[in-house]
């Protein structure tokens, strides 16, 4: 056997899927969906080709910021179980490649969104990328336990961008959708931090669980959930709300509040007994919570031309 294998001993060559994983596809799904809802909930119609291209470039921009985040946070990702298999810590993609992809796709997405939609939308996308990659990843995440609260704004901008793509301007409805995601992010991530117990400790990320303790985190989840419930139900009475949204919001917020109350009521002993079942359930519910709220806003907007959506 003289077959010399260069593939077995040579360095691993990144596949397209590895580069795609840099873009955080799961986060991109949320960005695409909320930006789409923001665009369709706006009163101005958008040509389907412009709509498709705009949402695609918003998604690419979100992916680019994800790649920049992975490039910067590779040291943290390598320590945490949840992220150790990401392309850079696992060695599938070189850090320099991630940086190049992040910068290139950021520039491309912002320029193309400016051409496809308008300059305000492009400016907002650029601001979002910088907010997430620089303000959150490079600074906030490592210095303050409020990282999730302020950093959550980055994930909350997509519906605002979607609204601007359609209208070319800001409005109170766009900021209501922003506020919904902004207030939802802390309880969502703090629930995750409760059951991903040692990850953030090991990585020395100042999550609330690490700096203020787990009891304080449970209190915070309840307080933020109460504020979120008021906001989410209040949105039902605005122009993006309506009977469908309100019905969905009442049910979802009752369940969410109940979940937060259960988390608040228990202590570490209870949680360890059932391996954080309540916290895990609350985290899963939080994903459905956001998806269904935006789904209801979309339903109201879709039915409005037929005389069913909204309050009028």
């Amino acid at each position: 056997m003289t077959d010399t294998s260069t593939t077995q001993s040579g360095p691993y060559e990144a596949q397209l899927g590895d580069y795609f994983a840099l873009l955080k596809p799961r986060v991109m799904q949320l960005v695409v969906f909320t930006a789409l809802v923001g665009m369709l909930a706006a009163p101005t119609p958008v040509h389907p080709v412009v709509a498709f291209a705009s949402i695609l470039f918003v998604a690419i921009g979100a992916g680019a910021s994800g790649a920049l985040n992975m490039w910067w946070d590779a040291d943290i990702d390598a320590v945490m179980r949840r992220t150790a298999n990401r392309p850079i810590p696992s060695g599938r993609v070189q850090p320099g490649e991630a940086l190049a992809i992040g910068v290139a796709l950021s520039g491309l997405s912002v320029m193309m969104l400016g051409l496809a939609a308008n300059l305000l939308a492009a400016g907002m996308l650029l601001f979002t990328i910088l907010f997430y990659a620089v303000f959150y990843s490079m600074w906030l995440k490592r210095v303050t336990p409020q990282n999730i609260v302020i950093g959550g704004a980055a994930g909350a901008f997509p519906p605002v961008i979607g609204w601007i793509i359609a209208t070319g301007s800001f409005s109170i409805e766009a900021w209501l959708m922003f506020a919904l995601i902004f207030m939802w992010t802390p309880p969502h991530f703090w629930a995750l931090a409760l059951f991903m117990r040692n990850d953030y400790d090991d990585a020395k990320v100042p999550m609330l669980t690490v700096t203020h303790g787990r009891r304080s985190t449970r209190n915070h989840i309840l307080v933020y959930t109460i504020l979120l419930v008021l906001l989410a139900i209040g949105t039902g009475f605005t122009s993006i709300g309506g009977p469908i949204y309100l019905a969905a919001a009442v049910v979802l917020n009752a369940l969410f509040l109940l979940g937060a109350f259960r988390i608040w009521k228990r202590d570490e002993t209870d949680s360890e007994t059932d391996n954080f079942a309540v916290e895990r359930k609350f985290f899963r519910l939080s994903l459905w919570y956001l998806f269904l709220h935006f789904g209801a806003i979309l339903a109201e907007a879709t039915l409005r031309p037929y005389g069913f959506g909204g309050w009028s």
Binding site: T2, D3, T4, S5, T6, T7, G10, E13
Partner: peptide
């Protein structure tokens, strides 16, 4: 053989 290179 060049099979290994071919695989790359």
């Amino acid at each position: 053989t060049i099979r290994a290179e071919h695989e790359i």
